[in-house]
Design a binder for these strands. Structure first.
Lengths: 375, 375
DNA sequence: CGCAAGTGATTTAACGCTAAATTTTTATGA
DNA sequence: TCATAAAAATTTAGCGTTAAATCACTTGCG
């Protein structure tokens, strides 16, 4: 039996010999002045069970102007870069379920080209949207705001008229580098990601600040830009080895992501360089990848799950605020983080350094690549 | 401007000085006997643009009894076991977008306990459902069929009244083992997953068949059961090393998943055992993990992406078949795979062995664990 | 006995859209 | 000039639900 024959409220009511409204009150708890006798209630429940009745969400949504579904837009390829998406999605779906929301996932291939598709998506089937890692401009944000409420997460630029959730990248870079300094390292390289991305810039800035605070001159040659993926980590490490062919290597490397660190460690290991004995490595993200390296990776933990949860909560608070226009005016301000401007609210999550086994004190004698073959 | 003020068709029509129906024809292409003059069309389009009109999907869905959204139910944790989910989701979202469908993702924590939640989900907000890796019984399948159409993927048991997509696990196990045999290996271990799962059973069966075909006696002690994750691979390998403490190790290991292979290789490497020189390792799945091991993993490729796509297509074919009841009766049979029984259609996808660098000919002298410390 | 107060239901309208039927307007030809 | 077809638009009704208003009985009480 397919659902082409799904029973409606009216079917149930007819079966029970009552009007649809009574059935609505009994089955769906419609709050109405209507009182229902126990006898009638029982008959309706029985009829509903027999007919496998289930309230139609579209009809409800149409009349309530709310479908209890949130949209999630993200780039979903299966590359190692997007591992973090699983973690965020986890948080989103968990929180959504707790709040009785379902989640409609929209796969973005290119944030610029897919803008139109994204707008079409806002046709009533979602109550709001969470944009993960978008590269969008203010003009689009305005267009989007005409059609739905939204919250961004890891956005490359804070969009106006929306909550923007991000992690304290600068602090993360700082903490990671600080940790290495405290271990005694003085020559620390940084494998950056694409420096067009503000997240990558901020991590670099944190690295720089830590060095400067420690009175260590920033060396341009110790920063290798790249991408957020494993392959980039391999390339950066190979490049560094080449660059330092007959000079001593830095004794520690702060990588802008776990994936970069993964590739970096792979190359180090294949050259017989021991971690952390010869070189210490720190990552960023704390995805499952950090538990896949040997030794396990010291890294900067982003609270992905919690960020996903919070994104849902902020979105729902916006939705509810719109429903009850003149309601509690304190909710938004309670949610707003310090540093808000008028229309844009930025929520920054704290990072936490997770020390595992890829970092330790520097070796007495830094590694020199030319000596490797003889080891 | 939030969407509490979303313009309706009537708003646009009023603005353009026409009836809602004309606007419907112009803006949404409603196929009706109505012809529209160019002048009117232009006025309507202009008004729609000014008001940022977008057709409400719920209203359309309500009257069409179709919302163009498919449900996807899966266990979505961020453990290494669920990497394959990203690949499948990729295929699903790609195909869905091509067919003008959106996807509502439902996170299952426990297939037994969440049955009720899963049923509630079928309230009109989805047209059908793809169940990924479910452990469901026939009773539930019947209940579910009352409310929606569905397709299962990697189901532990083929559910009646539904297409069940899976990969040829037995063949995969056979091919993997065959490859090792062809390299010259005679003592091949198998790190199985949870043998309560039919997929795991079938992979074991394929391994067994290959051995028997080659005239090699099946040795129970060479099969180590476990789970589908990295940790299990570590444990299985450690167990095997212990078991063979002073006896020669097998020269090759067929692992029931890439994750198991990952853990297995990690332990081998940490003991200084070289891959593939001392021991060859084969995995199963070909997720991105197979490209993360050093050396890259020889593995059995499951066409996840394609399976996801096909799941969408089969689901849509069911949905469309239900819409046009007495329509082309050939479509279902054309889609059905051989070996169908009346109500259950099983679609088996071919696997493909991907040879990378973790396999090679056996060593002259098999490794004996006690000798390891002296290497 | 008549009437207010309660109890237990029903009816109406609206949410935004479109198929089908119907009406109005315009153009065409004898 | 007037029927007549063709073109252009409108009206009606219904998808499944619920809020709000209304209606029909009991009951109790002065």
């Amino acid at each position: 039996m397919k659902r082409s024959t799904a029973a409606t409220l009216e079917d149930v009511a007819r079966e029970a010999g009552v009007s649809a409204m009574v059935a609505s009150v009994v089955l769906n708890g419609a709050r109405s002045s209507t009182r229902v006798s126990e006898k009638t209630r029982a008959r309706i429940l029985e009829a509903a069970a027999r007919l496998h009745y289930r309230r139609n969400a579209l009809a409800l949504g149409l009349s309530r102007n709310r479908i209890d579904t949130i949209g999630v837009a993200a780039t979903i390829d299966s590359s190692d870069v997007n591992l973090y998406f699983l973690e965020v999605l986890n948080g989103i779906l968990g929180a959504a379920a707790e709040h009785g929301q379902s989640a409609n996932v929209f796969s973005v291939f290119d944030w610029q080209r897919d803008q139109a598709r994204l707008l079409e998506f806002c046709d009533g089937r979602i109550d709001g949207m969470i944009l993960i890692g978008p590269h969008l401009d203010a003009a689009f944000a305005e267009a989007l705001a005409h059609h739905t409420r939204f919250v961004t997460l890891h956005s490359n630029s804070a969009l106006p008229n929306a909550y923007n959730l991000d992690v304290d990248n600068e602090r993360g870079g700082y903490e990671a580098t600080r940790h290495l300094l405290e271990q005694g390292h003085r020559r620390i390289a940084h494998f950056a990601a694409n420096l067009d991305l503000v997240g990558a810039q901020q991590r670099l800035a944190g690295y720089r600040r830590a060095l400067e605070e420690a009175g260590i001159a920033f060396e341009d040659s110790l920063v290798v830009p790249g991408q957020f993926n494993i392959d980039s980590g391999r390339q950066s490490m190979s490049a560094l080895l080449e660059r330092c062919a007959s000079a001593p290597l830095p004794t520690a490397i702060f990588c802008a992501s776990d994936a970069i660190a993964y590739g970096c460690m792979e190359v180090l290991t294949s050259h017989g360089i021991r971690i952390p004995d010869d070189i210490s490595v720190v990552g960023f993200d704390d995805t499952m990848m950090a538990r896949m390296t040997r030794p396990p990776l010291t890294t900067v933990c982003q609270p992905f799950r919690q960020m996903g949860r919070r994104a849902v909560e902020l979105l729902l608070s916006q939705i509810h605020a719109d429903e009850v226009p003149a309601a509690e005016e304190n909710t938004p301000s309670a949610l707003a983080a310090p540093g808000d401007d008028a229309d844009s609210h930025t929520v920054i999550f704290a990072v936490e350094l997770v020390v595992r086994e890829s970092t330790g004190p520097p070796p007495k004698q830094p590694i020199v690549p030319v000596s490797l073959s003889t080891r």
